[in-house]
Computed example of a mutant assay.
Amino acid sequence: MADPYVTLGVARSASEKDIKSAYRKLAKELHPDRNKDNPKASERFSEVTRAYDLLSDPAKRAQFDRGEIDADGNPANPFAGGGFGGGGFNGGFGGGGGGFRPEDLRGMGGADGVDISDLFEGLFGGGGAPRGAQGGPFGQGARGGFGGQRRPPPPRKGADVAYRLRVPFVDAARLADQRITLADGKTIDLKLPAGLEDGTQMRLKGKGEPGPGGAGDGIVTISVDQHAFFRRDGDNVRIDLPITLSEAVAGGKIKVPTVDGPVMLTIKPGTSGGTTMRLGGKGFTKKDRTRGDQLVTLEIALPADVAELAKRLDGWNDTANPRARFGV
Rank of each mutant, 00 (worst) to 15 (best):
220 V>M: 08
197 E>H: 12
165 L>K: 08
206 G>T: 03
265 L>M: 11
70 D>M: 08
240 D>P: 01
7 T>N: 09
169 F>S: 02
40 K>A: 14
83 G>M: 03
263 V>M: 06
277 M>R: 06
157 K>M: 07
236 N>V: 05
264 M>H: 13
83 G>W: 11
104 D>T: 14
70 D>T: 01
67 G>M: 04
218 G>D: 03
274 G>E: 07
116 I>H: 13
87 G>F: 11
152 P>Q: 12
30 L>C: 06
133 A>K: 09
101 R>C: 01
276 T>N: 02
296 V>T: 06
248 A>I: 01
227 H>E: 02
49 T>I: 13
312 R>S: 10
111 A>W: 10
21 S>A: 15
139 G>W: 00
314 D>H: 13
90 N>C: 05
75 P>Y: 14
323 R>F: 14
272 S>R: 15
13 S>M: 03
13 S>F: 01
175 L>V: 02
129 A>M: 15
259 V>F: 04
241 L>T: 04
255 K>G: 03
251 G>Y: 01
174 R>L: 15
67 G>K: 01
321 N>D: 14
35 N>K: 13
96 G>E: 06
280 G>P: 12
131 R>T: 05
321 N>T: 03
137 P>N: 13
10 V>R: 02
236 N>H: 14
15 S>V: 01
233 D>T: 07
119 L>F: 14
54 L>K: 00
257 P>I: 05
150 R>S: 10
55 L>Y: 03
308 E>P: 02
120 F>V: 06
278 R>I: 15
184 D>N: 12
88 G>I: 08
138 F>E: 11
232 R>W: 10
121 E>L: 09
129 A>Y: 13
227 H>S: 04
3 D>V: 02
123 L>K: 11
97 G>N: 08
105 L>A: 13
16 E>F: 07
102 P>A: 13
87 G>L: 04
294 Q>I: 01
36 K>F: 02
85 G>M: 08
212 P>F: 11
326 F>Y: 15
113 G>T: 06
46 S>D: 13
114 V>G: 03
221 T>N: 04
112 D>N: 11
323 R>Y: 12
20 K>D: 10
262 P>K: 00
260 D>G: 11
253 K>G: 09
185 G>N: 06
90 N>R: 05
78 P>Q: 04
152 P>M: 10
219 I>M: 13
113 G>K: 00
282 K>P: 08
256 V>N: 09
114 V>M: 09
34 R>W: 07
